[in-house]
Design a protein around this nucleic acid. Structure first.
Lengths: 160, 160
DNA sequence: CGTGAAAGTTTGATTGT
DNA sequence: ACAATCAAACTTTCACG
């Protein structure tokens, strides 16, 4: 499910390192940088897309421009290790647009959630709806972010 | 610096909600969905790019396909509130490809860092290099992620 | 904002390595 | 299996109404 085995070569890594920073560059320009013709670049990118190495191509929106001024990291522990509770909680996280990211973690907490809200009041409403109302959360701790030092989905690539 | 004031209307939000999920759709297709001509869509997208509402357009790479199998959330506290230390630490985070995200947070910790590595050994090497060697970190706690429930940069938009 | 023509980009068939 | 070329299809761009 992650990705069928398929060996990437140096050229693939090079292309990935370019497009994960800017997905809008024309094929001939990428080709010039890596020493390939536009259609060879296209074949590789399509293969990478098809195999799921490139998951998607998206526009990154600046949260503050659209009124999402309060980012917070929330640590969450569920009431017990019931599989149903975990499944329900994950589904809730996936369905909620205000949840940017959610990871299952090891240690005293079960989840780390990155939550975007317009302000403290909305953060409170969201927390009530996501962490209190369902009754599956034992404890949660909100760590408001006051600066985003770095935010991206960029992945470190062999040979960059 | 965040974004010069500029009021977005419902059509802008609609376009953003489309392109933040798929940046490769042609202008005429976006136009059909929102009821605008291709050039009106283009004008709006270019304005959104120029004003920094759309920060970039990127390919999202699946970490596991490129050998980044271990994601971890690291909580970090610096040794004191010296501005130089904070500046140096932020710069280190920004410069390091293995750091996907880094937020300054309120509370007992100073930073939350999302770190990508190939395995535990590399995570240890990275931690040594990023958190121990510089001598500016008082304490750090690594919370290995065992599942990525959700990961994206998608922002909640008014009216979606 | 829409139209439409020109410019640029992507696609895929073909051929060669 | 992979790459280059080239022509057709499609997309973006931009001047004008």
């Amino acid at each position: 499910m992650p990705s069928p085995s398929y060996v990437l070569d140096q050229l693939d890594y090079l292309l990935l390192s370019l497009v994960q920073h800017d997905a809008r560059r024309p094929l001939h320009e990428l080709g010039d940088e890596v020493g390939l013709s536009p259609s060879a670049v296209q074949r590789r990118l399509n293969r990478l897309r098809q195999r799921g190495v490139i998951r998607s191509e998206v526009a990154v929106v600046e949260p503050r421009s659209v009124g999402a001024d309060l980012m917070a990291v929330v640590l969450v522990a569920l009431i017990d290790d019931d599989a149903e509770h975990h499944a329900a909680f994950r589904e809730l996280m996936r369905a909620e647009p205000a949840v940017q990211q959610c990871y299952t973690i090891m240690g005293q907490w079960d989840y780390v959630v990155v939550l975007l809200a317009s302000d403290i009041a909305e953060n409170r409403r969201l927390s009530a709806r996501l962490f209190v109302a369902p009754g599956t959360v034992r404890r949660y701790e909100t760590l408001p972010a006051f600066e985003v030092v770095k935010a991206g989905l960029t992945v470190p690539l062999p040979g960059s």
